[in-house]
């Protein structure tokens, strides 16, 4: 299964999506990421019971904050799949990549250049 997906995605491995904190998501944007998506196990299948449900809540919190400060909630997204769904992983990567291309770069990068 030699699947292709966009190369400008950086994967950060975590033991469970429950490890992903709201602060991690916000810091990624603060450091200039154009988009962040979290890929967790199927809901109901978490080895730690509620890790992926916690991640979803945190993604929703990040979306609310990004909307408030004008960066846009579409730049952060939660996805769920099982470990056997490689094609879906590639599909989500492409989907997110296309969305970010449409949205353009993280607006704080333009602001930072202006300040400098």
């Amino acid at each position: 299964m030699r699947l292709n997906y966009p190369t400008d995605i950086r994967i950060v491995r975590v033991p469970c999506t429950g490890k992903v904190d709201l602060l991690h998501l916000l810091r990624a944007f603060e450091k200039g990421a154009d988009g962040v998506y979290v890929v967790g196990c199927m809901e109901g299948d978490c080895h730690f019971n509620s890790g992926n449900l916690r991640a979803r809540k945190r993604v929703e919190q990040a979306q609310a904050i990004l909307d408030t400060i004008g960066i846009g909630s579409q730049r952060v997204q939660m996805y769920n799949l099982s470990s056997g769904e490689g094609p879906l992983f590639a599909q989500y990567a492409t989907e997110m990549h296309t969305r970010i291309l449409e949205l353009g770069p993280n607006p704080i990068r333009a602001g930072r250049r202006e300040a400098a």
């Binding site: 602060l23 916000l26 603060e30 400060i69 607006p107 704080i108 602001g111 930072r112």
Partner: peptide, 16 residues
């Protein structure tokens, strides 16, 4: 941390 991050991003976006 969350508030500081949001405020920093808001300021950076405005070029401040």
């Amino acid at each position: 941390g969350v508030l500081a991050s949001a405020l920093r991003m808001h300021a950076m976006k405005a070029g401040r």
